[in-house]
Amino acid sequence: MDAASVPEPTGLEVRQLHALESTYPGWAITHTITPAGKHQWKAVLYRELTDLLHQAGVRAEVLEEDAIALATTLAHQTLLLASMRGGRAVPRRAGETP
């Protein structure tokens, strides 16, 4: 498949992108289709990823194959960000991983 034949995003994909952007304003969200036809949904955190955020499990960049997977990952990332209070992470339960 050459670059000229890369499909355009569907109306649904455009609506999904707008929904993600409005739901997760702290992230720069993009949707691309590779020349091979593979969908890539990417979110990049606008704020600086500090060591403390990283240790809490927050990722600076998230890449998923569909909008639903990205929404799920961003919901979890938002929960991790919200768990930060007063510059420190809320302790995790035993056996919980980021």
Rank of each mutant, 00 (worst) to 15 (best):
M1F: 11
M1I: 06
D2K: 02
D2C: 02
A4N: 13
A4D: 11
A4Y: 15
V6C: 05
P7V: 10
P7C: 11
E8T: 06
E8G: 03
E8H: 11
E8W: 12
E8V: 03
P9Q: 11
T10W: 08
T10D: 05
T10K: 11
G11R: 13
L12D: 08
L12Q: 10
E13D: 13
E13R: 15
V14F: 06
V14M: 08
R15I: 03
Q16M: 08
L17T: 14
L17F: 09
A19C: 03
A19G: 03
A19R: 06
A19E: 13
L20T: 10
E21G: 05
S22C: 04
T23A: 08
T23L: 01
Y24C: 08
Y24M: 12
P25V: 13
G26V: 13
W27M: 06
W27D: 12
A28Y: 10
I29A: 01
T30N: 00
H31P: 03
T32K: 08
T32E: 07
T32G: 04
I33R: 14
I33N: 11
T34N: 02
T34G: 03
T34V: 00
T34S: 02
P35K: 07
G37F: 00
G37C: 02
H39L: 05
W41T: 04
A43R: 08
V44R: 12
L45K: 01
Y46L: 00
Y46A: 00
E48G: 04
E48C: 01
L49N: 12
T50I: 06
L52A: 12
L52D: 15
L53W: 12
L53K: 10
H54Y: 09
H54F: 11
Q55I: 01
Q55R: 14
Q55P: 03
A56E: 14
G57V: 07
V58F: 02
V58W: 07
R59F: 04
A60R: 14
L63R: 10
E64N: 06
I68N: 00
I68L: 00
A69M: 06
A69N: 05
A69Q: 08
L70S: 09
L70A: 02
L74H: 12
A75Q: 09
Q77S: 05
Q77G: 05
Q77M: 00
Q77H: 07
T78Y: 14
T78Q: 12
L79D: 15
L79H: 13
L79M: 09
L80Q: 12
L80E: 09
L81E: 15
A82N: 15
A82I: 13
S83E: 12
R85L: 09
R85P: 03
G87M: 10
G87D: 10
G87E: 12
A89L: 13
A89P: 08
V90M: 06
V90Y: 08
V90Q: 10
R93L: 14
A94K: 15
G95L: 15
E96D: 11
E96C: 07
T97G: 02
P98F: 12
